[in-house]
Design a protein around this nucleic acid. Structure first.
Lengths: 350, 350
DNA sequence: CTGAAAGCGCTTACAG
DNA sequence: CTGAAAGCGCTTACAG
């Protein structure tokens, strides 16, 4: 039989002490209008006297929302001791708090392995939370599609709904022309020997940026040299490995390396540093993201930055609103970058 | 009346489909021993076919644990875009995951303001989680004491239980002699003109370190000059302000500044940098913590580092074990620092 | 080995 | 304005 919560009060006890029924206690707690002040005060004084808080599971079982969203964080490879991860988390937590929501954190190494899949599905399908936010997912994840099909409300970063417009799939995506803008920028600085460290081609944003880089090269009549085009994943280690391979396999050096994102660029820095190649003297570097650490590098990284705080505020707000059954919500949004010009990309021929 | 969860299965439906009673479904789900394989298989095939997950609130209301702990993060002042915050969070999340627990995140600006108090109390007193971890609390917080008195299981960093040994208050504290060790170290390097940037005297660790600094000075017969002893709080901004004030109000400069912790030391760096004072040429700096960012400074920061990963693993493990009713658990632990000698503290007279 | 039943603590439509 | 009652979905002691 259900275990009584030791010394905790329940609504029948409060009702008895206040001389009303449980129904009335509940109405007071839930701020129903049709309760006269005298009743309300009588009940509240007992509630406060005993520090009574209605049982969470009781409330939820009776039909209330949980007031919680899950933040599912897909972290492939090693754990990120990453300022950006920290700020993303805090953005989600604070955005949720602004709507009276709490965040349940779930970090999984991937979304393909049985154990991780089960942990994630369980959270939603048990009804432990009202909705979820996904960060770091690939562009096609069976778990995500499964949850969407089962009417779980999900807010996903960098994701296109496969079903077109599921009413419970909220998304935010990156502008599609960042890659092109990066190339235009370095081209404008006089660079013609351009290397690309791509991201993870299972991510929409990486594919988009890759295509943008290529469009930019073609538009400006730059030869695409595949020895200078590498996959670096979206992490520091990937950028490092890709740059090392690039340096090892090319006779002629590029004058600039455009990275899929700033974390990747950090790896580029490390590899160039180890090879004794000066930035931006010998090779310039440009990133994408506006990572908080980018201005702590030597030299500070020139990058195309996004306003992630604003992005998460909107994603979380739209997701919670959807979970609350509100309508007329924008299902997808794009975010746009702003050039943050620092000192890692020099002007050639000066 | 309780709202049915649209298309979600429940245990009576599964029972009907499997040709058994709800009791049996529950026994299978909960891995009871006395269920023959044939019954188990029959039930599980229905469970899997429909992707059934038992309702969280139903289970909890019937007496199961929530499998969740709350992480209450007291962040005074502005939001930390901080690698350390990120790694602490990840440590807690991963440590909890190792025990099958999920982490509910709650960030509050302080624990004294009515709204924050209420948010925090609600989480625990509603029974939303099995236990809590507190980071960043002052050494005497009424909310914390209240929760302890109401039998909530809490794991607290840098905290001494006021009641002595409440069986539900798990703690971890810093060694008490770090301050002394810092002074011994700089003394050994030839420093005699020693400045101190203290932390926040509402924290046990800051008080301890302060006392350690003083003991170290006395032991080594160093004059304590109060113009060189400042409060810097435990954050970058505090270290910055304190150092600026110190520079503005003293004629003679110290040869070394010992900071309460690394974040504070970051602020010391910034203030010295702005004043055009070379580190360690003109003034050396020593921190405490082993902050992940400390090796990214110029020059890299010499500091006394702690193993926070291990610390959180133990704190979380002990807290969860207590929540599970296990006994014989170590209530308090101390953690010990290791000197990480880098280049911010020079040897004098060489 | 298994089912019927009680109980966990709430909310809300219904009736007054 | 308010109470009695049904119902949310589970678990487990009890009885067989």
């Amino acid at each position: 039989l259900g275990k009584s919560n030791d010394n905790r009060m329940n609504s029948v006890e409060i009702a008895r002490l206040a001389g009303v029924s449980r129904s009335t206690v509940s109405r007071v707690i839930n701020r129903y209008r049709n309760v006269p002040d005298s009743t309300r005060t009588a009940v509240m004084s007992v509630v406060e006297k005993y520090g009574y808080y209605p049982s969470f599971s009781g409330r939820v079982l009776a039909g209330k929302r949980t007031g919680m969203i899950a933040l599912v964080w897909v972290l492939h490879g090693s754990i990120a001791y990453d300022i950006q991860a920290s700020s993303f988390m805090v953005h989600v937590i604070e955005s949720a708090a602004a709507h009276g929501y709490l965040v349940l954190n779930c970090v999984v190494p991937n979304l393909r392995e049985k154990n991780s899949i089960d942990r994630v599905k369980k959270i939603f399908l048990q009804g432990q939370v009202d909705a979820g936010i996904f960060i770091g997912t690939n562009n096609s994840e069976p778990v995500v599609e499964d949850l969407i099909n089962r009417n779980v409300v999900l807010g996903i970063m960098d994701h296109i709904c496969s079903g077109g417009t599921d009413p419970n799939c909220i998304t935010v995506n990156f502008e599609t022309d960042t890659g092109e803008r990066v190339i235009d920028y370095v081209y404008g600085k006089g660079h013609r020997k351009i290397a690309i460290i791509d991201g993870n081609m299972n991510r929409y944003s990486s594919v988009c940026r890759h295509e943008g880089f290529v469009r930019g090269m073609q538009k400006n009549n730059i030869e695409i040299r595949y020895e200078w085009m590498r996959y670096g994943d979206v992490i520091e280690e990937g950028g490092y490995m890709a740059t090392k391979e690039l340096l090892n396999s090319t006779k002629e050096l590029p004058t600039v390396i455009c990275a899929n994102n700033d974390s990747t660029a950090f790896g580029v820095y490390r590899a160039l540093g180890e090879a004794g190649i000066n930035i931006p003297g010998m090779i310039s570097v440009v990133g994408i993201d506006g990572h908080e650490r980018a201005n702590m590098l030597q030299p500070e990284l020139t990058t195309f930055g996004f306003d992630f705080k604003e992005m998460f505020e909107s994603l979380v707000a739209r997701t919670i609103a959807t979970a609350r059954g509100e309508t007329g919500i924008v299902m997808n949004e794009y975010i746009f970058s702003k050039l943050i010009e620092r000192s890692s990309c020099r002007e050639l021929g000066k």
